[in-house]
Structures are given as structure tokens and as C-alpha cells.
């Protein structure tokens, strides 16, 4: 498929995936279709254990579907190495590396560890409040700062698509609200396309432009909604009168 102006950044077309164990085969994803537009923030929600993380692993090319097609700008996902930045539930900073060395880790791995790329990555860290902490070790920072450092590390190789796997779930509620706001600001500021999976409906409404609702396992698309809060920050969205209406609608669709 050739790229046209309408070609989505990421697309799932009729994707199936199954886990195999000695106990048998478990269908985790069934006939999943969705696409991600340039610069948009999409959230994927679904009942616990429905296969949200599997969807993200498929998008990152860490797992291969047994049927269907996953494409990045029209090209198969397996040919798209280096286009993704993956952020996990915990910050996963390496404790023996300073924040500076953690941030440049993807550059070392991707063999892009040039002076210019390092400078660019470290300037991001400075821009988003980590400039004074570059020589610190992860255990010397608060949970919120560690998560910010993890996001800067994800952004360091300048990925086209950010894949966020419940990146705030390990934080306490207050820190989660603040970090959520920070992360939203950084992703918008850097004009990145992002795919977030979360079990938290409020988090999805407060961050996303569109929300994809998945069914119980095997995961398939139940609904896709345009939220229409683009100009508002996550904290502002939470105060909006429409917020609770969206929450109720999505809660019903989850059918937990």
C-alpha cells in the first residue's frame, strides 16, 4: 500500500491474535479494526484482561497476528522499526544508570547516539523540568518525576507513534492527576501521535481525542467515540459538565 495524505499513521485491519500454551489456544484479539490519525491521541479501554496490552504489543510489532494486517503509514509493521516509543505501566528506569544515561538509552540501542541526538534528548529533559536532575539516579526522584523521565526517554529517539500502556497506573491518585496533565502537555507540545491503553475510563476521557471501546476477550471493537475536548487540558476536562456523561456512556458500553 502506498502512502497518501489520508493514509492513517497506524491501522489494524481484521486482526486476529491467539496465545498458545500447553493447556491450549486462547483467542485474545478477534477481527479488530481501527486506525490512528496523524497527531491524534487515541485511548483504548476495555474490561480487565480483555487484551488491551496485547493490542499494544501487536502495534509495536512485539507480537505478530495470525490473521489480518497491521500497518504503519501503509507499510507492514515489521518494516517499521524505530517508529514507536513504548511506555509501560512502571517507569522501568534502569536503577544503575543516571537519568541522563536512562534518557539516551534508546539512542544507544538504536545506534543513533550522536552528539546532536543526545543534545536534542537532553534539551527535552531540560524543557520539561528534569535539567537539574540529569546526574541523579532514579531512586533519588519522586514517582512523578521518574514517570516524566520515562516519557522523555520514550521521546528521545523522536518516534512517530507513542504507545502508552497504562503509564499512570503505578502512581498514587494525586500524582497521577498531575503527571497525566504533564504528560498530555508534553505529547501535545511535541505534536506526537499517541495510542494509550487504560482500564481507567476517567483517564481515557481526560486525555484522548477518540476512545476505542473493546469487548471482553477475545477483544474486538465495540464502539469508537470522538470526545471533542481537544482544546482542554486533562484537569479542565475533568471539570467539564460533559465529563460525567461520557463516563456513564462508556461505563455502560464496557458492560462490566
Amino acid at each position: 500500500m502506498n502512502e497518501t495524505p489520508d493514509t492513517p499513521v497506524l491501522s489494524f485491519e481484521n486482526v486476529y491474535y491467539a496465545y498458545h500454551t500447553k493447556g491450549g489456544e486462547t483467542l485474545a484479539v478477534r477481527s479488530l479494526d481501527f486506525s490512528l490519525r496523524e497527531g491524534e491521541f487515541m485511548a483504548v479501554i476495555g474490561p480487565s484482561g480483555c487484551g488491551k496490552t496485547t493490542v499494544l504489543s501487536l502495534a509495536a510489532g512485539l507480537l505478530s497476528p495470525f490473521a489480518g494486517e497491521i500497518a504503519v503509514r501503509g507499510r507492514p509493521v515489521r518494516e517499521s522499526a524505530g517508529k514507536f516509543g513504548y511506555m509501560l505501566q512502571k517507569d522501568e528506569l534502569f536503577p544503575w544508570r543516571t537519568i541522563r544515561k536512562n534518557i539516551v538509552l534508546p539512542l544507544e540501542v538504536g545506534k543513533k547516539n550522536t552528539e546532536a541526538n543526545r543534545e536534542k534528548a537532553l534539551s527535552l529533559a531540560k524543557k520539561y523540568g528534569l535539567g537539574d536532575f540529569l546526574s541523579y539516579y532514579p531512586d533519588q526522584l519522586s514517582g512523578g518525576m521518574r514517570q516524566r523521565a520515562a516519557l522523555i526517554r520514550t521521546l528521545a529517539p523522536d518516534p512517530e507513534i507513542l504507545l502508552l500502556d497504562e503509564p499512570f497506573s503505578a502512581l498514587d491518585y494525586q500524582t497521577r492527576l498531575t503527571v497525566c496533565n504533564d504528560v498530555y502537555g508534553i505529547i501535545r507540545g511535541e505534536k506526537k501521535t499517541a495510542l494509550l491503553v487504560t482500564h481507567d475510563i476517567s483517564e481515557a476521557i481526560s486525555l484522548a481525542d477518540r476512545i476505542l471501546v473493546l469487548s471482553r476477550r477475545p477483544a474486538t471493537a465495540v464502539a469508537l467515540h470522538e470526545i471533542g475536548f481537544e482544546a482542554m487540558t486533562p484537569l479542565e476536562r475533568r471539570e467539564s459538565p460533559c465529563f460525567s456523561a461520557w463516563f456513564e456512556k462508556l461505563w455502560k458500553e464496557l458492560n462490566i
Binding site: 512485539l62 513504548y86 509501560l88 522501568e92 540501542v109 538504536g110 504507545l163
Partner: peptide, 17 residues
């Protein structure tokens, strides 16, 4: 840590890396 291995794999790391 399996999650850290996943993180490195998502960066495109080889087994040696």
C-alpha cells in the same frame, strides 16, 4: 525484569544488547 526486556525489545534491541 521481564518488563525491562519488553522495553528494550520495543526499542529494537538485539539479544546481545
Amino acid at each position: 525484569d521481564k518488563n525491562k526486556i519488553t522495553l528494550l525489545r520495543s526499542m529494537g534491541a538485539s539479544k546481545l544488547q
